[in-house]
Amino acid sequence: MMWSSPFVTQATSVSQIMLRVLLALIPGIAMYVWFFGPAVLVSITLASITALATEAAMLKLRNRPLKPFLTDNSALITAWLLALSLPALAPWWLVVVGTAFAIAVSKHLYGGLGNNPFNPAMIGYAVLIISFPAHMTHWLTPHGLGGIELSFAQQLDYIFGGILPSGLTLDALTMATPLDTLKTQLHLGLSVGDIREMPIYGRLAGHGSEMVAIAYAIGGIYLLYTRVINWLIPTTYLVTLFVIAGIFHLADPVHYAAPLFHWFAGAAMLGAFFIFTDPVGGSTTFRGRIIYAAGAALITFLIRTFGSFPDGVAFAALLMNICVPLIDIWTQPKVFGKKGGGK
């Protein structure tokens, strides 16, 4: 048997890293359940089962061993991220189609773990929002706004059977997201200040969803602390988003929301700590990561402010994923002993 040094390795493994990411999502999920009911747990479970089943089927088709890849937890991350990006009251087939597409097409057709150029969860999201835009807007009214809240049994009825309690329509139960509302109301001529007075908004961004974002950030800080993710991407992303939003807000506070609103609305926090930090499709060099995260922040802001989609995080991730090979080539660091004649 041929052996090459080194003969010792650090204990961390891919599956541990992925497991930590899953753990870090738990505070966010807990907040989600508190404000929007347990329906999201059903989505996560559905997505997880679909992801593992699709992963197993694809591995079988590609003649790869099942065990190491099913236990690497990467499919679960895709499943969870996708489930968290969907409206909680999504019909079961929406979750299944999105997850299956993410795993089968955007992950395995590109070569499986480590070879997917795009973030699979975001591909799943993009496919769904383009194919089924109507179903992607049914966001439940958060707890504490005095809206009608369905029981868990009623939620299950809708998810699996499409049946709503008699006398209720989907429109009565759901509402547009804070980002969406902002966009529509601005079009109607209201100022940001007026819009923010509406009950769906909280202190920072959307009522309820801002707390979910804070919980994501807490999970992200755990990931930073355990060095699962590199600090550069979340920092650059958030700072750039803050600066761009801040410039627009300072120039025209009537039409542009405050930077903190951008931080805590939509999927910005989820993106900063969980989506853009996905290493596979991300840049690997120092300067590359700055460009990658800053670009993502710019695209997020542009789509949110000027685009027709409610949030820009998914498309920011995908668009920057495309640029990564080029960014990496551009930003190769200087090698030891090749730094301008060695000082």
């Binding site: 041929m2 090459s4 003649n63 790869r64 061993p65 190491p68």
Partner: peptide, 12 residues
Amino acid sequence: KWPYPVYALAQP
């Protein structure tokens, strides 16, 4: 020559 690293798991 050092041989090409072959390991059964992830490689075809």
